[in-house]
Amino acid sequence: MSAGPALVSILRQGDTLVASIHTALDDSEMIRFQNDLVHQIGEHRARGVIIDVAALDVLDSFGSRTLRTIAEMARLRGATTVIVGIQPDVAYAMVQLGMGRMGAHTALDLEEGLAYLSSMRNRRRRAAP
């Protein structure tokens, strides 16, 4: 990626990947982010993915669609995706735009997202034996 501050960061915590988008991404950067993330799910054997979009001021149709695609791909790779930090204005714009149904689980913030993932893990563990 080009010089300058990182546009996104993907951190691992246990079996969860925390991906933060730091600034507005253009379409090709968004696609690159999608590929990176899906690749890293396999690399780290992640079971949960949290995408933090708190820094985004706009989630247009393409951005929403990419997030949805990521969630679908992650699900196919065996990981649960939670999108956290959608700003109220962005949420309003998304509803207006007709993008209300994300197709991925959403949570208010990182904490809620992690809690959701651990509850999912517990449920799976209980179901397994």
Binding site: D57, D60, D89, A93, Q96, L97
Partner: peptide, 11 residues
Amino acid sequence: TDLTLLATAVS
């Protein structure tokens, strides 16, 4: 809110 709506539409 209007800012976000506008920016989304421009996008």
